[in-house]
Nucleic acid binder design. Structure first.
Length: 194
DNA sequence: GCAATGATACAG
DNA sequence: TGTATCATTGCT
């Protein structure tokens, strides 16, 4: 219950990925809007040896927050138009993160509809849709999601979602990644949602 | 099926 | 300094 602490994120990335399913992201905006959503799909990127991970070429300007402490937002720009939101995992110095790929809005749905301008099923069922829906951009790269005063954070609401466990699949959108990294089933998603 | 749209990282 | 690629999305 309550906000997820740094100790939650400072663990093996696959454990963090699995346990993030069913948790919530919450954002308190300066306008007074409260946005929240339940996490239903995430993806793990683990270390410099993982050839699908941005850290595969070592530390660079783009990926440097992945090398830092856990519980920090890693936000990057891709395809010339989209922002992607990750949460840094593992210990300080080891580059790893969990990408949020799909969430179900629970609060502030009207605000999210305004921002997305799409039918409800498409409000936040993709990584770049999530950042659009929640107004997450470059200002959030390096943001401390575990700071007590954070207005954007992860939460365990204690609510039990109607579900039937989870599935693990091959990660999405990394088509040309050599084996075995292209075949690791590090995409986690809740199954049997009603 | 594919265009949009520009940063990134490597090659040279 | 040039360019292939990219953890995507939405339109045709």
């Amino acid at each position: 219950m309550g906000r997820l602490q740094r100790s939650f994120f400072g663990r093996p990335t696959l454990t963090v990925a699995r346990e993030l399913l069913g948790k919530s992201i919450v954002k308190l905006e300066s306008s007074g809007d409260l946005l929240s959503a339940t996490i239903v799909e995430v993806e793990a990127y683990i270390g410099e040896t993982d050839l699908a991970c941005h850290a595969r070429h070592g530390r660079t300007q783009r990926n440097q927050v992945m090398f830092g402490p856990p519980g920090i937002a890693y936000v990057y720009f891709i395809y010339g138009m989209y922002w992607m939101f990750n949460i840094v995992t593992e210990h300080d110095g080891f580059p790893a993160a969990v990408l949020l790929r799909s969430v179900l809005p629970t609060e502030g749905i009207e605000k999210i509809r305004q921002r997305r301008g799409r039918p409800d099923p498409e409000l936040s069922n993709g990584p770049a849709k999530i950042t659009q829906a929640f107004g997450i951009g470059p200002a959030y790269n390096g943001y401390d999601l575990c700071a007590p005063s954070a207005d954007f954070f992860l939460e365990d609401t204690g609510e039990r979602l109607q579900m039937n466990g989870y599935e693990t699949l091959i990660r999405v959108g990394i088509g040309s990644t050599p084996e075995p990294w292209g075949e690791m089933t590090w995409n986690y998603r809740l199954s049997g949602l009603t």
